[in-house]
Write a protein that binds this DNA or RNA. Structure first.
Ligand SMILES: NC(=O)c1ccc[n+]([C@@H]2O[C@H](COP(=O)([O-])OP(=O)(O)OC[C@H]3O[C@@H](n4cnc5c(N)ncnc54)[C@H](O)[C@@H]3O)[C@@H](O)[C@H]2O)c1
Ligand SMILES: NC(=O)c1ccc[n+]([C@@H]2O[C@H](COP(=O)([O-])OP(=O)(O)OC[C@H]3O[C@@H](n4cnc5c(N)ncnc54)[C@H](O)[C@@H]3O)[C@@H](O)[C@H]2O)c1
Lengths: 224, 224
DNA sequence: AGACGCTTGTGAACGTGTGCACAAAGTTGC
DNA sequence: GCAACTTTGTGCACACGTTCACAAGCGTCT
């Protein structure tokens, strides 16, 4: 299955869930594509990788398709997740309800700061980073989330991998190397902002980007 | 400039900053590519869109290249940003220091909950969503960050656009439509996790994903 | 000055992803 | 049971992105 398709399945799943909640029983590729914000031909091709689950002349059965995608992604079972680095972001992630509802169970919180260890966040006690290996093995954790400062990210990932974690989601703005067989994805806020800034700059954006001071200078230059 | 290239420029910028801090004056495409985690031919092609800033036989001057990329992305001036939805995530984002250091200034925080309005977060008073249009115009804000619940995301984006915002970063797990000319990017945590789960499932992952209960059942089946 | 070694910049081949367009296959109505 | 209509599944052409491979260019050393 193409990587691009895999990346869109969660999107379809979300759209289907919304439809199911609205009581919709069947949906055409055209409608589903619209609510997922993609081209309908692309949607059909994506779904065809799962099998021929549509009915020509009718469309797709919402609940059935939802189950098929859930199974394909591997969300029929819960995945235990450890969050490393319980600072600003780690707290937000730990308190986020959107995980549990999508098949991910936050099983442990870990931090290196002794002052943080023992604190209770979202019903879990923060444990010390030294226990990481034990925690991962005891709880059968396969997925790690890294929310430490950038300089600690490589070390933390190394330790996660050594402990047996084979999938990592990294929030730290750092380039991290992992061995073959380990999946690493990153969520990179500043990069996203910078991409927006790039496009903004080549729209009408230059004017909006001026600070009050710069605007005053400009006015002066123009006026006189 | 290809979109894929634009998405990598921030990566190069980060790698160059790290090198500059280490006192490195020049760098070859091979070295820079390694520290950015990409293929060196790709790096050279990406940089070639900026112009011919390298020296054959030598490499690239770190500071000079850094400046060129900064300029190209549009980071020579500060961008004013408004965050809408000051809950769990909004707090973390407001307190995040990584913005200012990269040319983004959080200019305003906005929430619809009257109980939240007036609260001081990261040195800024949270203001009411009704003031959004005024705020955007007064502060010359071009970039909006949406951290509201999913059901409010479309409405918030519509209001941001109406107020004059032309770039939006959306954290809510919702499909949002914006008019031509407005850039919308999304950071989608659950999607990232689900992609990891998919790959995890087709590694050795199935075993690790078992709950204790399922593991017990399996043991019974195997042994019995 | 000229030969040598290194590194850039890029043409060209390849691979991946997208979207059109339509035959195949189903449903509905008569 | 057949015709008209709807919608899927997919072949095909095209666009985009990646990587190889190497000529062109620069610095260095003799
Ligand atoms: N806060 C945000 O909104 C935000 C946004 C985007 C990216 N990020 C990135 O996410 C990461 C975390 O951000 P934050 O604002 O939560 O930072 P933070 O400083 O508030 O929290 C970092 C936490 O990591 C812990 N830590 C440090 N080294 C560790 C180690 N070796 N092992 C385990 N824990 C360790 C610290 O004790 C601290 O509790 C940073 O890399 C930041 O750049 C944050
Ligand atoms: N917390 C996380 O770690 C996390 C991770 C990924 C995604 N998200 C997503 O980010 C969004 C925010 O998450 P959160 O945990 O901060 O939620 P939250 O409920 O803590 O905060 C949401 C805030 O938005 C405000 N709000 C609601 N409607 C609004 C409107 N129309 N205008 C302005 N403000 C409005 C609420 O008053 C509240 O303060 C959600 O969509 C969530 O799914 C959160």
């Amino acid at each position: 299955m193409p990587e691009a398709t895999v990346a869109r399945l969660p999107l379809y799943l979300r759209a289907l869930t919304t439809l199911a909640e609205r009581g919709v029983a069947t949906v055409s590729s055209e409608e589903l594509a619209a609510s997922a914000g993609v081209n309908s031909a692309k949607l059909r091709k994506d779904l065809s990788y799962l099998g021929s689950y549509g009915t020509r002349g009718v469309g797709y059965e919402v609940d059935f398709l939802r189950h098929q995608i859930t199974r394909e992604i591997g969300l029929t079972q819960d995945w235990a997740v450890v969050i490393v680095g319980i600072g600003n972001l780690g707290h937000a992630l730990a308190n986020y309800g959107g995980f549990a509802s999508r098949g991910f169970r936050i099983a442990a919180l870990v931090d290196a700061d002794p002052g943080r260890v023992g604190e209770e966040v979202a019903g879990l006690k923060v444990r010390h980073a030294d226990e990481l290996e034990q925690i991962v093995q005891d709880l059968g954790i396969a997925i790690g989330v890294v929310a430490t400062p950038a300089r600690a990210a490589q070390l933390v990932c190394d330790r996660l991998v050594a402990a047996g974690v084979t999938s990592i989601l990294n929030f730290a703005p750092a380039i991290v190397q992992v061995p073959e067989g380990v999946d690493l994805r990153k969520v990179d806020l500043s990069t996203e902002m910078q991409i927006l800034a790039y496009h903004e700059q080549r729209k009408n954006g230059a004017a909006l980007a001026l600070t009050a001071e710069q605007a005053a200078e400009l006015a002066e230059a123009v006026n006189g």
